[in-house]
Design a binder for these strands. Structure first.
Length: 435
RNA sequence: GGCAAGUUACCCAAGCGGCCAAAGGGAUCUGACUGUAAAUCAGACUGCAUCGCAUUCGGGGGUUCGAAUCCCUCACUUGCCA
């Protein structure tokens, strides 16, 4: 882990003004469902416990939805509890049932590769030092050696099909015309198995996850109770949605990834900055370690002077720094300050412009490159036809000047003999480098 | 294993031999208004291109001047029966 990352971790803390951790979690809106709340409250206020949260490698990176879990894990760790970060080397091979459609299976090689990426990401948000150091586990370690017979005899006997059918994700699929494969149907058993294994190996007594995973969380709670006779717990965090009900964490239909190769710090900063007024306070509670006093101050400021966007600015700075570090975030802010709006880009010096452009998707060009093609090359549009349409609609700007002719060449619109800035709409920027 | 129904663009969903690049809704994008907010209104939304052309309606094959629409076959899904 880098020095910067460990420094960031050491600066985090829970809000000591709350009587206990549970109260803070409730205030932050992190508890949507749980097993017995009174017992959990006492458990979290008492001696250190071991808890876990699992992340399945269904993509090469975690995304903002996973960040909720990572930060919840960190909050528990800050309260002295011991985190187990589980990466689903085996569950990722199966895929949890989504309510809409059957998943396409990824190859073993792909999943194994993604496990590595996810482990690195999970590690960044937890401390691996001290009495309650975090530990990474991979469920492939105990699932792979298990034979089908062992699985059916030792684990399957504890599961009632009637109960399994009632889980939301399963019943949703059964009631759709999509159906569900036996593979995905079995997923909940695998996840239950994890909780039992971690209970046995580490005395793990709590699992956290998204509320959409509630069926899988209780699967483990039930198995531990039946097989080991022990009472263990689960917390389901609310699904983060925007005030208008749309899915959170997507920009232009794409997920906001934690991997800077997939979503640049600039793009993530912009995502946070564009948070609705109605959502910004909720986001601050979930995605930052700011204390209640500070968040309430921001809430008042947002209510009084929403146009200042103070909440969004603090959220964007804080949350982006959590993921990408302060340096990258400050660079993203500098890039936005330099490039945003209607300002004259020629006023920027070459060094500022260059570092700003580094934060953006870029394409190489020559003086006779057409603007339409560059729109495609930079990923601002997906085809020449779309580029033409965007230009016809007046939505394309070269160096902040509206492009009116779709046959236009970059020509002499070059800054410092090397750069140009292409913009689609108000907010989507890309850099052009002259080769 | 038997019978029936179904598979349409990112999602839902019409179309049921030519008038279909394919209705409608959602999502998304752009413009106007704004605060890089929301709401609202307008436009766009397969690709390449000067009214044109090419490729799409689960896969493959066929009938026809012509098919998303009819036939055969394969795959998958759902329901009922066993």
């Amino acid at each position: 882990m880098s020095a910067a990352a460990s420094e960031a971790l050491s600066s985090q803390s829970n809000d000591a003004t709350f009587p206990d951790l549970w109260s803070e979690l409730e205030w932050r809106g992190l508890v949507h469902v749980s097993t017995n709340p009174d017992e959990l409250k006492a458990l979290l206020a008492g001696e250190p416990i071991t808890y876990y949260c699992g992340f399945d490698p269904t993509a090469p990176s975690l995304h903002l939805g996973n960040l909720v879990q990572l930060l919840l894990m960190r909050r528990l760790q800050l309260a002295g509890h011991k985190p187990l970060g589980l990466v689903g080397g085996s569950t990722g091979l199966i895929g949890d049932p989504r309510p809409t459609a059957e998943r396409t299976l990824n190859t073993r090689e792909t999943v194994a590769e993604w496990v590595g990426y996810l482990e690195a990401q999970v590690s960044r948000f937890l401390s691996f030092e001290g009495d309650n150091a975090a530990r990474l586990v991979n469920n492939l370690d105990w699932t792979a050696p298990m034979s089908a017979i062992d699985f059916l005899r030792d684990i399957g006997k504890y599961y009632r099909v009637g109960t399994m059918l009632k889980k939301d994700a399963v019943s949703a699929r059964l009631n759709s015309d999509e159906g569900i494969s036996y593979t995905e149907f079995s997923y909940q058993i695998l996840q239950g198995l994890d909780f039992r294994q971690l209970y046995l190996d580490y005395g793990c007594v709590l699992q956290t996850g998204g509320s959409d995973q509630w069926g899988n969380l209780t699967s483990g709670v039930d198995l531990v109770k039946r097989a080991e006779g022990a009472a263990v717990h689960a917390i389901g965090t609310p699904l983060i949605t925007n005030s208008d009900g749309r899915k959170f964490g997507k920009s232009e239909g794409n997920a906001i990834w934690l991997d800077s190769e997939l979503t640049s710090p600039y793009a993530m900063y912009q995502f946070w900055l564009n948070t609705d007024d109605a959502d910004v306070v909720d986001r601050l509670k979930v995605f930052t370690f700011l204390d209640r006093h500070e968040i309430e101050r921001i809430e008042a400021a947002v209510a009084a002077e929403p146009f200042k966007r103070e909440g969004q600015r603090i959220l964007a700075l804080t949350a982006t720094s959590l993921v990408h570090g302060e340096d990258a975030t400050l660079a993203a802010i500098a890039a936005a300050d330099a490039l945003f709006g209607q300002g004259d880009l020629r006023a920027l010096d070459a060094a500022t412009l260059e570092s700003a452009i580094e934060a953006l998707p870029t394409a190489n060009a020559s003086r006779d490159s057409g603007v339409s093609q560059l729109l495609v090359d930079t990923g601002l549009v997906s085809s020449l036809g779309e580029a033409r349409r965007a230009i016809a609609q007046g939505g394309v700007y070269l160096n902040n000047a509206k492009v009116v002719d779709d046959g236009m060449l970059v020509g002499t619109n070059i800054l410092h003999d090397r750069f140009a800035v292409l913009r689609r709409g108000k907010k989507t920027l890309a850099g052009i480098r002259l080769s």
